[in-house]
Design a binder for these strands. Structure first.
Length: 485
RNA sequence: GGCGACAUGGCCGAGUGGCUAGGCAGAGGUCUGCAAAACCUCGUACGGCGGUUCGAAUCCGCCUGUCGCCUCCA
């Protein structure tokens, strides 16, 4: 579907809708961040790379985006039911450290891994523990308005008080009762009700004073509070993984709309899940390979390391609303593809403007925008890239470099570097030091003499041995060139 | 049990009521001392069975299969 204007698939309506921000050119965007009690894995990569491209493309279109992504450094219960243990507290107990130490550590590794994937940092990364008073205030409001009740130190949201409950996930709450394995907390009025504030027992490490006694905030309230604080009671985009659609996002809507009597979010966006060799992966299943393990190759299921850029490129080759199945074979194909893409970029960067046909930058731009406007179709955008870059390189190799090469390069930087974030890594690598290239040039000189003397044994040895070191020699009409991996 | 998604050529993976997605792998060719790279050419796919239609892989129904959510998870 070719689109002149940006269309976004809205989970709320199950349709692609024309994107019209509430207060253009400003756009408020909130994406559920990680719970920092473990290393980031492929699932995080898919979600945050997806929304990174959403963010980058919105900015490319000229929107002034404020991007908020929370860090959950408290709570969420481990195990079934409502009586489980706080995940951070559990991790802290196992590692014999303070929960905040755990949170700090994994916040650091999270951003480290996202940086490696070239994911832009959010404008604001609020911590749940830094917003306890705001959460208490919101719970108070909900109680005052009759949407929540205190049950001996546990405060629950009264789902029956919200006729809209269920509108995001499309589930009929009345009928979804039977068959669910939720252990019902005994002090709830209704099993569907969810916790806003939980009473802490004596051993609980992370707890705060509240009007209802010592406790800690419920699972969903932090996102309602922090998004509202930094983006307002109504904002444009809320994103997250599909698995959070219910109950997390449904509950966020209920809390926020009942507290503020305003539409919470205009566009809900959900990325699909990641599978590994066809199998679901998740923290609780134990088959999650950390991103760092991908980057270093240190995992039993991996045969080698994988460049973060390759992982990013691989993810962008499928749509964010499709599941992405990881396998090393698929990654390898992506790696070769990315390498080719980069080599095309490099040859365009090195070329001199020529007397060839003027390249149709406008046409390139229109095709790129058409596919991106169709709900951020990065997979098609990459196809557009290959088609156009191939054409340009063809002109260059035929010594017919486009005359508007300079303008073209600016456009390529915008699209490939700024929007998709898959530009070749910097020139500072070991392969590009003056010493290295000087040495390689020297070998090329020696080999040239050998070839002139028809000493192909020596010339092939030089070429083969350099190849072993990652230096590829290429004999062309105008002499020998080289590239370094 | 309830709800939902998906099934595309050797592999990954977009998309669409009639017109080549793209990438990877593969085959042949040009070039080359030989390679590599580059360039040229080549694959006519859409789970099964019905239906709608002038025409469907694309719409509808049924079936089969895979996966997800319903319980912390991106």
């Amino acid at each position: 579907m070719a689109e002149q204007k940006l269309h976004v698939y809205n989970t709320l309506t199950r349709e692609k809708e024309l994107f019209e921000p509430l207060n253009p050119p400003f756009v408020g965007m909130y994406v559920c961040g990680p719970t920092v009690y473990g290393d980031a894995h492929l699932g995080h990569a898919k979600s945050y790379v997806s929304f990174d491209v959403v963010l980058r493309y919105l900015r490319y279109l000229g929107f002034n985006v404020r991007y908020v992504q929370n860090i959950t450094d408290v709570g969420h219960l481990v195990g079934d039911g409502e009586e489980g243990e706080d995940k951070l507290a559990k991790k802290a107990r196992l590692e014999q450290v303070d929960p905040m130490q755990v949170a700090e550590k994994y916040t650091y590794t999270y951003f480290r891994d996202m940086d490696a994937l070239n994911v832009l940092r959010p404008d604001i990364a609020p911590r749940a523990t830094g917003h306890i008073p705001e959460q208490i205030a919101m719970i108070k409001t909900l109680i005052k308005k009759g949407h929540a009740y205190n049950s001996d130190g546990n405060v629950y949201f009264d789902v029956s008080s919200d006729p809209d409950y269920g509108k995001l996930s499309g589930r009929n709450v009345e009928e979804s009762e039977s068959g669910t394995r939720v252990e019902t907390a005994s002090d709830k009025k209704d099993p569907k009700d969810f916790a806003l504030w939980k009473k802490a027992d004596g051993e609980h490490l992370m707890k705060w004073d509240s009007p209802w006694g010592v406790g800690y905030p419920g699972w969903h309230i932090e996102c309602s509070v922090m998004s509202t604080k930094y983006l307002g009671e109504s904002f444009d985009i809320h994103g997250g993984g599909l698995e959070n659609q219910f109950p997390h996002h449904e509950c966020e809507i209920a809390q926020s709309e009942c507290a503020h009597d305003a539409q919470f979010v205009k566009y809900w966006m959900h990325n699909n899940m990641v599978t590994l060799e066809g199998q679901k992966m998740g923290k609780s299943l134990g088959n999650a390979i950390n991103l760092e393990q991908f980057f270093t190759g240190k995992h039993d299921l991996l045969t080698r390391s994988w460049d973060p850029q390759v992982i990013r490129f691989f993810l962008l080759q499928s749509h964010y609303r499709s599941t992405t199945d990881f396998s090393e074979d698929a990654l390898e194909a992506a790696e070769t593809g990315l390498k080719n893409l980069h080599s095309m970029i490099t040859s365009i960067e090195k070329a001199e403007p020529g007397n060839g046909e003027t390249f149709d930058i406008e046409g390139f731009k229109v095709s790129f925008e058409e596919v991106m406007n169709d709900d951020f179709n990065s997979a098609q955008a990459i196809a557009v890239l290959f088609e156009n870059l191939k054409e340009i390189r063809k002109q260059i190799t035929a010594n017919q470099a486009p005359s508007n090469l300079g303008e073209l390069r600016i456009f390529l930087h915008t699209v490939i570097e700024e929007v998709l974030g898959i530009w070749p890594n910097g020139e500072g690598g070991p392969g590009n030091s003056e010493l290295t290239s000087g040495l390689v040039e020297l070998f090329i000189e020696i080999r040239k003499e050998a070839r002139a003397n028809k000493d192909f044994a020596l010339s092939d040895k030089i070429r083969d041995d350099l190849k072993e070191l990652g230096v590829q020699l290429m004999d062309g009409k105008d002499g020998t060139t080289f590239s370094i991996d």
